[in-house]
Computed example of a mutant assay.
Amino acid sequence: MVDLQQTLNEAAAAQQRGDIAKSLSLLSEAARAHPASKQPWLRTAQVQFDAMNYGAAIVASQEVLQRDTADLTARSIIAVSGLRASAAALAHLRQMNSVNGSTRVEAEGLARTIREAIGEPVLLPPQSARATTAGPSGSARRAVTRTAPSAAATPPAAAEKAAPGQPSPSSGGRNPFGALQ
């Protein structure tokens, strides 16, 4: 029988060497040998996320949640992977000037909902404004510099709820993305 911890360690070593295929192969073997364990799936999700394979990261995270519905890391990987895939698709559509009409309205509504849920006034600050600073709890946080946003981009109610450094009431004071930092 395959020793789970030894296989997980070998997979981590392969990933550190840059051999992602070997790491994923070892994790797949561990998942087959230990079908009730969430660990091979969680590591697979993390490897896929690190490799920017967001669809595969989501699928592996869903396997984790089948074994442990309360796993915060798996939920965070699903959320962030989905956001990154959506952001890339919207950026591509924007380049093609195809985000208009109902698609644009739906995307703005979704962005508003996400901002309120995570308590951030801006989802993805401009590249030049991204920097890490120490937050009140000592954890790394992004510093957000805003340039004159449109009235539709940030409704006043969302701006009041998402005061810098304050957790959103809707998030219960917990950052669902903290596990990925």
Results as ranks from 00 to 15, higher is better:
Val80Asn: 01
Gly82Asp: 02
Ala129Ile: 06
Gln95Trp: 07
Ala33Met: 05
Val59Ser: 10
His92Trp: 12
Ala85His: 03
Ser76Leu: 00
Pro35Ser: 01
Val122Trp: 07
Gly82Pro: 01
Ser137Phe: 04
Gln62Thr: 11
Ala152Met: 14
Ser81Cys: 03
Trp41Glu: 06
Ala13Lys: 14
Met96Trp: 05
Val122Lys: 06
Thr147Gly: 13
Asp3Leu: 12
Val99Asp: 04
Leu90Gly: 11
Pro155Leu: 12
Met96Ala: 15
Asp71Ala: 10
Ala163Thr: 13
Pro176Gln: 07
Pro164Leu: 00
Glu63Asn: 13
Ala70Glu: 12
Ser168Arg: 07
Pro156Leu: 13
Ala129Ser: 03
Ala33Lys: 04
Arg75Gly: 01
Ala163Trp: 03
Thr73Val: 10
Val80Lys: 09
Val80Met: 02
Leu90Met: 11
Ala11Asp: 02
Ala70Asp: 11
Leu83Phe: 09
Pro156Gln: 05
Ala134Ser: 12
Val144Gly: 00
Arg142Met: 14
Arg130Asp: 05
Asn9Tyr: 03
Leu72Arg: 07
Pro167Ile: 10
Ala153Lys: 08
Val105His: 09
Arg32Ala: 15
Gln46Thr: 04
Val105Ile: 12
Gln62Tyr: 11
Ala157Trp: 14
Ala148Gly: 11
Ala152Cys: 08
Ala111Arg: 07
Pro167Cys: 13
Arg115Ile: 10
Asp71Glu: 09
Gln66Gly: 03
His34Tyr: 08
Val122Ser: 08
Glu116Trp: 13
Gln16Thr: 10
Ala117Ser: 10
Thr7Gln: 07
Glu120Ser: 14
Ala33Pro: 00
Gly165His: 00
Arg94Lys: 14
Leu42Asp: 03
Ser86Lys: 05
Ala70Tyr: 08
Thr44Gly: 09
Leu124Tyr: 04
Gln95Glu: 14
Ile20Gln: 00
Ser37Ala: 07
Ala162Phe: 10
Leu42Ala: 10
Ala107Met: 04
Gln181Asn: 03
Pro125Asn: 02
Ala60Phe: 00
His92Gly: 15
Lys38Tyr: 09
Gln48Ser: 13
Gln46Tyr: 14
Ser170His: 15
Ile77Lys: 09
Met52Arg: 12
Pro155Phe: 14
Ala134Asn: 09
Arg130Tyr: 04
